[in-house]
Design a protein around this nucleic acid. Structure first.
Length: 295
DNA sequence: AATGGCGTCAACCGCAGCCCA
DNA sequence: TTGGGCTGCGGTTGACGCCAT
C-alpha cells in the first residue's frame, strides 16, 4: 500500500529512550492498557511515534520479559523451532513467552548462527575424516546408547535426548501449538494440501488463544507432527532445509538407505555440555574434530 | 593512554495483512 | 469493492562497550 514512514514528522524523537520517557509510557499503559498506540504520543506528550511506543513496550517495558543469558533449554528450543519454522521470530517467541521476538532474533543472529556454523564445520571435518560408512541412524543410536549410560531415562529407547523430555507437559503443549503454526507453513507447500483424508485426524485448535492474531491455522495431524518434530527430522531440517525435511517426514523414515548424515546428537550434547562446561560427551569425535575450539 | 576492530542489542525501517468506513 | 488507518513482523542499522594492539 505504500505509506510514508510514521516517524517522518518533524519533532518526532528517535534513538534510545530515556528513563523519563519510559516512566511516562509505563504510567500511561498502566492506566489505559496497551493498544491504541496512535493515541499514546498524543495523550502522553511523548515526542515519539506510535510505533516507537509500541516497540518500546513490547520489547523492553512489558512485564514478564526475561532478560539476560539464554538457558541451554531455550537455545535448544530456538534452534529446533527455527529449523521448523524458519525466521518466523514471532511464532518462535510464542513458545518462549518470557522472550521477545526481537531478543530471539538478535540472539540467533549474534550467537546461534555462529554456533551452528562452527558445529557444521566440525561435522564436515568429521565426515571427511571418517569412512566408517555408518548411517546417521547408526551414529545417533550410538549416541543415545551412550547417553543412556549417563541418563537412565534414555535407556532402551530410540527417542530424543532428555532435553526434549525434561518438561513433558510444556513440550507436549508446544507440540500441539507447533502443529497449528506448522499448518500455515505447510499449507503453502502443495505436498501438504493433497491429503484431505487426514482431516479426520485433526487437532482441535479452536480454544487456542496463544497464537494471538497469527491467523487461524488449520490442522495438521499429530502423526505428521510427531514425524516432523522427531530428532531425526530435526537433523534433516537443520542440515538439509525444511523442504527436504518435509519429504523425509512423508517417507516416514527420513534418511534414505546409505545416505550418510552427520551425527546430530553431537549438537544436542554440545548445546547442553557447553553451558555446563562439560565436553566429555564428545569423546567419540576424532581428535581433529575435537580440536575445534567450539568442541 | 589512544585507537581501531568487533560483538551486542535496542531501535528503526519498510512491507504485509487485517479491519473498517 | 476500494482505499486508508493501524498493527505486526522481519530485516537492518547504529550506538555503545569491550578487547586487542
Amino acid at each position: 500500500m505504500g505509506r510514508s514512514p510514521c516517524c517522518d514528522k518533524i519533532g518526532i524523537k528517535k534513538g534510545p529512550w530515556t528513563p523519563e520517557e519510559d516512566i511516562i509510557l509505563v504510567s500511561y499503559i498502566q492506566e489505559h492498557g496497551p493498544g491504541n498506540w496512535r493515541a499514546v504520543p498524543a495523550n502522553t506528550g511523548l515526542l515519539r511515534c506510535s510505533k516507537s511506543c509500541r516497540l518500546r513496550w513490547t520489547n523492553y517495558l512489558r512485564p514478564g520479559i526475561k532478560r539476560g543469558n539464554f538457558t541451554p533449554h531455550e537455545e535448544g528450543m530456538i534452534i529446533h523451532l527455527q529449523a521448523l519454522l524458519g525466521n518466523r521470530w514471532a511464532a518462535i517467541a510464542s513458545y518462549l513467552p518470557q522472550r521477545t521476538d526481537n531478543d530471539i532474533k538478535n540472539y540467533w543472529n549474534t550467537h546461534l548462527k555462529k554456533k551452528i556454523k562452527k558445529y557444521q564445520t566440525a561435522i564436515d571435518n568429521y565426515m571427511i575424516s571418517t569412512d566408517s560408512g555408518s548411517t546417521h541412524h547408526d551414529i545417533i543410536s550410538k549416541g543415545y546408547q551412550k547417553d543412556a549410560i549417563r541418563n537412565p531415562d534414555l535407556a532402551g529407547s530410540h527417542s530424543p535426548p532428555s532435553r526434549f523430555h525434561q518438561s513433558p507437559s510444556t513440550y507436549a503443549s508446544s507440540t500441539e501449538n507447533i502443529s497449528r503454526l506448522l499448518e500455515g507453513w505447510m499449507r503453502s507447500s502443495p505436498k501438504f494440501t493433497q491429503d484431505k483424508n487426514q482431516r479426520s485426524n485433526i487437532i482441535d485448535n479452536e480454544d487456542n488463544e496463544s497464537l494471538g492474531d497469527q491467523g487461524s491455522y488449520a490442522a495438521v495431524t499429530k502423526e505428521n507432527l510427531d514425524s516432523l518434530i522427531s530428532l531425526e527430522n530435526f537433523s534433516s531440517i537443520v542440515l538439509q532445509g525444511p523442504e527436504l525435511a518435509q519429504a523425509d517426514a512423508e517417507t516416514k523414515h527420513g534418511v534414505a538407505e546409505g545416505q550418510q548424515q552427520p551425527p546430530l546428537f553431537f549438537l544436542e550434547k554440545w548445546l547442553l555440555d557447553e553451558a555446563s562446561g562439560q565436553v566429555d560427551g564428545l569423546m567419540e569425535l576424532p581428535a581433529d574434530c575435537c580440536s575445534n575450539p567450539m568442541l
